[in-house]
């Protein structure tokens, strides 16, 4: 499994190298060789360090992340409008408080994605995670009724997939 992920990592690095070096018109052999060598060395070092695993190269999420990302962007857009309304009001009316959410993800990676998604939507910031308990700072308490967070929680759990980590 690790070797498989190492190949994925190598492919991603090579793709980034090729895209950033703009070498489509006339592929220079020397440049390509430099890139391939660098990527190979980097992946070799990563494998030796033991950092190529499910968490650092989560390619198994890539397919489902395609579905999750647009939904997340839409959520971020909606909550941005909400926070913008608070800021632009003539009088600042905030009612901040700390609320707790329960994460239903099984893996640390799933909880990480959930916590980051919560932080990415303005209006809620994750300030701490203990096991599956998320401590969230909300800018307006009354607007956090939990329904959106439950929805996000459900979607992240679906993104995490069925296979056991």
């Amino acid at each position: 499994m690790t070797s498989n992920r190492a190949v994925w990592l190598w492919a991603i690095l090579v793709a980034i190298w090729l895209l950033l070096s703009e070498q489509t018109q006339h592929l220079e052999l020397l440049f390509i060789l430099f890139g391939l060598t660098t990527c190979t060395v980097a992946v070799r070092v990563c494998v030796r360090m033991g950092v190529v695993d499910r968490e650092s190269v989560p390619v198994h999420l890539a397919g489902r992340a395609v579905l999750y990302t647009p939904w997340l962007i839409w959520e971020v857009f909606k909550s941005n409008l909400r926070v913008a309304r608070i800021i632009l009001a003539p009088r600042i009316r905030v009612d901040p408080s700390i609320v707790h959410f329960r994460a239903s993800q099984r893996t640390d990676l799933g909880r990480f994605i959930y916590a980051n998604s919560i932080t990415l939507t303005p209006g809620t910031v994750t300030t701490g995670i203990v096991a599956d308990d998320l401590e969230v700072h909300a800018i307006v308490q009354t607007e956090i009724d939990g329904s959106e967070e439950n929805d996000m929680n459900r979607r992240v759990t679906a993104l995490e997939g069925e296979r056991e980590g």
Partner: peptide
């Protein structure tokens, strides 16, 4: 903490 929400707005 409330400023963090505004900062997040800029970032996203």
């Amino acid at each position: 903490f409330t400023r963090m929400h505004a900062a997040g707005m800029t970032d996203t």
